[in-house]
Amino acid sequence: MQTDGLGKRYGQTWALRGCSLQLPAGRIAALVGPNGAGKSTLLHLAVGLLQPDAGQVRVFGQDPRDNIDALADLGFVAQDTPLYPDFTATELITMGSRLNRRWDSEIARERLTRLGIPADKPVGKLSGGQRAQVALALALAKKPRLLLLDEPVAALDPLARHEFMQALMGAVGEYGTTVLLSSHLLADLERVCDHLIVLQTAHVQLSGAVDDLLATHCRLVGPRVADGAAVPGVAAMIRASHTERQSTLLVRTDGPVDTDRWAVHDVTLEDLVLAYLGAADTRSTGTAALPEVAA
């Protein structure tokens, strides 16, 4: 999946603007950002449900909108897991087999049986978590090359979330599926995702392989420095806090840091996401712009 200057607006408001990113095949990518950042809009553009107002999106080199060949390779679970409420899971599986070129009913049946979800009960009478699992089972039965998930675990309990994430990892390993997963649950994402995309105020703020991003960011603790002061080895200061004598900085590095002056600490994925989102919030109040980062 690749986007170049992708944008979508509703009236005079841009829900997504200038979005350029490339998602490598075979990755599980986390798509994070606050409500209203443009995550759902990006996913709906990627599956052809919306038409862009600027730029383009390509999935396996093709425009997904009204493109049967491209859509055959896509699986999508929307935020509200829309399913025909009067249909049973068995009926939905049968319908899927008749509507999709590439379909494996056994994947869906085995998954629902393992989870103890009744296949003969109308899905409208299932719990929210069970409906989410049915939607995922149907999406995996399509054997998509790219699976897009919009807040799929919001309705699941911790055990079900863990099982859901394990299923995603299994799909990537078995079928080579690429996954783009939108979620606010950073702890769950950190366990399974190897690529990160941060959206904020309709823009891509950060994008890249998790290992690369973590390797080029760290937390520095040392003597008090002024905001905006140059620090050797630091390409960008993402977030800073100060006491009277000490500064704590989350930074992106471009070279060695003076370890005699600074104590250097690794950061987690959660540290990184919260720092960039917090820095973007500060930027919106009129302070210096934070550079967009792609690794």
Rank of each mutant, 00 (worst) to 15 (best):
Q2A: 08
G5E: 11
K8T: 09
Q12N: 10
L16A: 10
L16P: 09
L21R: 09
Q22Y: 03
A30G: 15
A30F: 08
V32G: 04
P34D: 07
N35A: 11
K39M: 03
S40K: 09
L42M: 13
H44N: 13
L49C: 12
L49F: 13
A70L: 12
L74P: 11
A78E: 10
E91D: 07
L92K: 01
T94R: 15
N100S: 14
I107W: 03
R114A: 15
A119Q: 15
K121Y: 01
P122Y: 06
P122D: 03
Q133R: 12
A139L: 00
L140C: 00
K143C: 08
A155F: 08
A155E: 05
L159T: 13
R161Q: 01
H162R: 15
Q166F: 01
L168A: 00
Y175R: 14
T177C: 04
V179K: 02
H184N: 11
L189G: 08
E190T: 09
Q200H: 15
T201P: 01
A202C: 07
Q205N: 04
S207I: 04
L213S: 01
H217I: 02
V221P: 06
G222T: 02
A229H: 06
A230M: 07
A236R: 05
A236Y: 04
S241N: 06
H242P: 14
E244P: 05
P256W: 01
T259Q: 10
R261L: 03
V264W: 02
V267F: 09
T268E: 04
T268C: 07
L269R: 08
D271E: 04
L272S: 06
Y276R: 12
L277P: 07
G278R: 04
G278W: 02
A279C: 03
A280N: 09
A280D: 10
A289R: 12
A295C: 12
